[in-house]
Amino acid sequence: MNTLTIYKREMSSYFSQLTAYIAIFIFLIFIMIMTFAVAQYMRVGDASLQYTFFYWHPLVYVLLVPIVGMRMWSDEHRSNTIELLGTFPISIWSTILGKYLAAATVWLIALALTFPIWITTNYLGDPDNFVIFSGYLGSFLVCCSFLAITSLISAFTKDQVVTLVLSCFICFLIYLVGFDQVARWIQTVAGNSVAEVFTATGVWDHFRSLNVGNFRLQDFVWFATVISTSLIGTNFVLNSKRN
């Protein structure tokens, strides 16, 4: 119940300020440029959308997800409204979840707004819509993971810029570590087993497997671990900051 109250406040806050609109707008523009101009969607006829469309999502999220999430706790610390939240008769968890779910909803809207590409693909070809759905799910889970990391970082500081830079950096590392080319390089430098560890740690492998419609248990475990650890960490940091 209280989670819903916090959620509603956060949503109205996102859409009464420019940040969410800008993030969604840049996301859509960037993805469209990548899909049509760089990846040549019309020429290659990639009906699963995996190389032309979803391929770019994690990279865009590295920058844009922290932009939406950076105010999550930093702003509460800066304006001291955290003191109000801390003395309201609600649990800290309902606040953490309310804020997190609101930010995730902003991204769900952004993803939903890419629907023309799905319609286009269905009009031009005969795609496996299950694989496309799985691709969207993978993309959204990457987004949620980055958002949880941003939530954790923003719990530390009242400085939104610090939150933004640090979150981008950490998300970028997680993106890079399992990325195909990087994984191959680690393989030649440090051997197979080390490369496997890195690949399993990074987001790329888990994202790609959902992209091709594979529902592997380890992927869901990875996403669930990152999200829950970051949110539990957020709770821990907020509590220890109050002591």
Binding site: N2, T5, K8, R9, S12, S13, S16, Q17, S79, N80, T81, I82, E83, L84, T87, F88, P89, I90
Partner: peptide, 26 residues
Amino acid sequence: GYLPESAPLYDDMTVAGFLRFAADIR
């Protein structure tokens, strides 16, 4: 009922909107 020292508020809300939020919480 608590009034903190710095009177913290959510700047992006209206006065009535903020009070409705607090009422929801209560």
